[in-house]
Design a protein around this nucleic acid. Structure first.
Length: 743
DNA sequence: GAATCTCTTGTTTTT
DNA sequence: CAAGAGATTC
């Protein structure tokens, strides 16, 4: 047993956490203080020193990425695979529990997971059936209401009608939605958690089994737990029983809580100390930062200090202060992207790797101008998040075929593809089937066949529907008869569905991309064939000690994988490329060079957060900013634009309040402000040349008029330059063609 | 029933 | 600007 390997790389506070003898340990870990390391080493410590079986350990994370990373690092440290240890996201673990105990959970064996897109469609359908005007009552609001209720552990019947303030229809939709999902074997994200929680409450024998099994529960990103997740943990750990033997170890940072909008409650950190009081408890603070330079940390500390109600934490480093933060004020988002790309080129020229660079933004749509610029300069990049692979329409179509093959009750899937590709089943026919299904409380698949048999459809419609039914049955035969591999099955289904032909016949770039995506789906299935799902393996392995066994067809496994992981990590991962992602997906990651872009009031902080009078949401935006700043190791560039295209319109933009919260002495303004709105219409040549050859463009620009060879005086901080600029008026905006310095 | 056109509406963030 | 809904035409 080699304890030194586990202990030596740790500082005092980290060691204190890893070796904690308390039954319940709370680790308050600032950004970059070695949070993951502590978790990984804690588990290694438990296994090697305290002789805890990996079988008795449950580790919970929030993203699949984090779960994979944790398992990888544990196995690296222990130098042995830990197959039967459960490591997963709350959703992933809940899903496995429900698969293993579907009967006890009141589900059908082959239940399907739906994403929020499917969920919204179902809600729209129900509202239509109930005759609720979706103009006045946006389905999105109802969706939000349902998910919020579930996140708080509330079923429809537990909701007090009076609290709805004449929005009783929401409750009605919720009830109908629940019934529909139950009838058709569909489970949404929030439902996974709620069911898993109810499983504990309704099936004490199962709860007892898992309580006896898990002696140690570890939770990462604890500040992001929502009510139902927290409740699930509390029940499992038997924290209310003084004699419980279960030890909990949670790691979190209140300053990095950025999922309040999803029901996460920072208060859980505080509550933990009161709620988990069985046996002894300890709190450890990790404040020494091993990631960023002093200046970056000072900026982060200064920004987050504006929040109230913090648990209090100040990051520090033993390393030097490093470079100043650079702030660049761009004319517009194109200019911003050009600046970023220019800096990236510099970094790479100096021998830096592209994978050390991240471009971060508040909302995914902001990736576009950056992508455009990077393509232009042939800089390889990779975008995370946004429309994920398994969320693309054509992929979801293909998956809907697979779902229907695997579960004929899946109404959501059936509705999606009954007329994709078009096969002569129109809105009218679908409406008839829907209504009939509603009357008999049957699912659509069965109803459609009944309607044909009873000749309640027109001959033409009946023929088309019959063809569809036959098609699905035929696919089903392919899948069940042969002992084909998963990827072969999917290849067949994609072929037979004629989806490729359907999308391919459209002669656009987008259509081409869709066909390629469908081909990529087959590759994804191949990869899944080879690699499988580590959590599933763990469950299978450990289920040997349970009376219930978990048996899922490869197809069902693949579908669940697609629903829960939405398809990160496909393609080009090996190439050295710049990383583009939202601030939310950047949490937990670090980069040498970080660009924090779009720092404008209304964009970041987002305008919706600014409307909130309580300020709670503004504080969450600020935490998001804190997360962004602390991603950087060496260099941090903060950019904002004077003008930004929003919904196709050019809008004036103002610097984010967060910029002013950073002490001025930590910042170097790369270029000062230009007040002329006409300049905002200029293109990127100007900015590059002007800033590149050292001209500092000043506060005011004097110009006579725009046109061929306009001469402009630029006043900088102290400096002054005269330049000749050639413009072209193109429709509605000025394009700057070139610029030359005169004096 | 399908394809095409016009008009409105809107995007924060993710399991 | 782009996607979705609704209306119109084939």
């Amino acid at each position: 047993m080699d304890i030194s390997q586990i202990i030596d790389p740790l500082n005092k506070a980290q060691r204190q956490a890893v070796c904690s003898e308390a039954q319940n340990t709370l680790v308050l870990a600032g950004a970059g203080s070695g949070k993951t390391r502590v978790l990984v080493h804690r588990i290694a410590w438990l296994v090697q020193v305290e002789n805890v079986s990996p079988y008795s350990i449950l580790a919970v994370t929030f993203t699949n990425k984090a779960a994979g990373e944790m398992r990888f690092r544990i196995e690296n440290l222990l130098k042995t695979p830990v197959r039967n240890m459960w490591v997963g996201t709350f959703h992933g673990l809940a899903h496995r529990l429900l698969r293993s105990h579907w009967q006890d959970a009141g589900l059908v064996e082959n239940f399907q997971i739906i994403d929020s897109d499917d969920q919204l469609r179902l809600i729209k359908r129900i509202m239509k059936e109930l005759g609720i005007d979706d103009k006045q009552n946006p389905p999105r609001e109802v969706q939000w209401f349902i998910n919020e209720s579930k996140d708080n552990g509330l079923r429809a019947e537990q909701i007090n009608v009076r609290e709805l303030h004449n929005r009783e229809y929401m409750l009605e939709v919720y009830q109908q939605y629940e019934a529909l999902c139950q009838r058709t074997g569909l489970v949404d994200f929030a439902e996974l958690l709620l069911r898993a929680h109810e499983l504990w409450l309704k099936q004490p024998h199962l709860l007892k089994h898992y309580q006896q099994r898990f002696s140690h529960i570890l939770v990462d990103e604890f500040q992001d737990t929502n009510t139902i997740q927290y409740a699930w943990l509390k029940v499992l750990s038997a924290n209310n029983l003084p004699q419980t033997q279960i030890s909990t170890f949670v790691v979190g940072d209140d300053d990095q809580s950025i999922y309040g909008w999803r029901g996460a409650k920072i208060e859980h950190i505080r509550e933990f100390e009161q709620d988990f009081k069985a046996g002894s408890s300890a709190t450890v603070r990790l404040e020494q930062n091993y990631r960023s330079t002093g200046n970056i940390l000072d900026a982060a500390n200064a920004v987050i200090a504006n929040n109230s109600e913090r648990l209090g934490k100040e990051l520090w480093t033993e390393d030097g202060e490093g470079e100043l933060l650079q702030v660049y004020q761009a004319f517009n988002e194109i200019d911003e992207a050009a600046y970023v790309a220019g800096q990236i080129e510099k970094w790479v020229e100096k021998g830096g790797k592209r994978s050390e660079i991240a471009i971060l933004y508040r909302s995914n749509a902001q990736s576009q101008p950056h992508e455009y610029e990077l393509v232009k300069r042939a800089i390889p990049y990779r975008v995370y998040g946004g429309l994920r692979f398994y969320e693309r329409a054509e992929i979801k179509d293909a998956l809907a075929y697979l779902r229907l093959v695997s579960n004929r009750q899946d109404d959501a899937a059936l509705e999606r593809i009954i007329n994709v590709p078009t096969r002569g089943i129109g809105q009218r026919t679908v409406d008839i089937i829907r209504m009939a299904a509603r009357e008999t409380q049957q699912h659509l698949w069965q109803t459609a066949q009944t309607l044909i048999a009873e000749q309640r459809l027109t001959a033409r419609a009946a023929g088309s529907v019959q063809k569809f039914v036959d098609l699905i049955d035929e696919m089903s035969a392919l899948v069940t008869d042969n002992s084909m591999s998963l990827s072969e099955q999917i290849t067949h289904i994609v072929e037979v569905s004629l989806l490729k032909e359907f999308h391919g016949k459209e002669n656009s770039e987008r259509a081409q991309a869709k066909v390629e995506n469908l081909e990529e789906l087959v590759n994804a299935a191949k990869r899944f064939d080879d690699e499988g799902d580590p959590l599933l393996d763990a469950v299978k392995e450990s289920n040997e000690r349970m009376p219930e066994t978990l048996s899922m067809s490869p197809l069902a496994e693949f579908l669940a994988h697609a629903a829960l992981e939405a398809g990160e990590g496909q393609a080009d991962e090996w190439e050295d490329c710049v990383q583009l992602m939202s601030l939310h997906s950047a949490k937990g990651l670090e980069f040498e060079l970080v660009f924090l872009t779009g720092l404008e009031q209304g964009l970041f902080p987002h305008k919706n957060a600014l409307q909130d009078f309580s300020g709670g949401r503004l504080e969450e935006e600020r935490r998001l900013c804190y997360v962004g700043i602390t991603r950087a190791r060496q260099q941090l560039h903060l950019t904002h634009a004077e003008s930004r295209t929003i919904y196709g319109r050019n809008e004036r933009a103002y610097p984010s309040q967060f910029l002013t919260e950073i002490p001025a002495d930590l910042i170097r303004q790369v270029r000062a402000v230009s007040q002329s709105p006409a300049f905002a219409a200029s293109c990127s040549h100007f900015n590059n040349e002007a800033s590149e050859d050292g001209v500092s463009i000043g506060q005011r620009v004097t110009h006579k008029k725009f046109g061929e060879g306009t001469v402009i005086d630029i006043e900088g901080t102290g400096a002054r330059a005269r330049v000749q600029v050639n413009f072209d008026y193109e429709g509605s905006r000025w394009l700057m063609l070139n610029i030359a310095r005169l004096a």
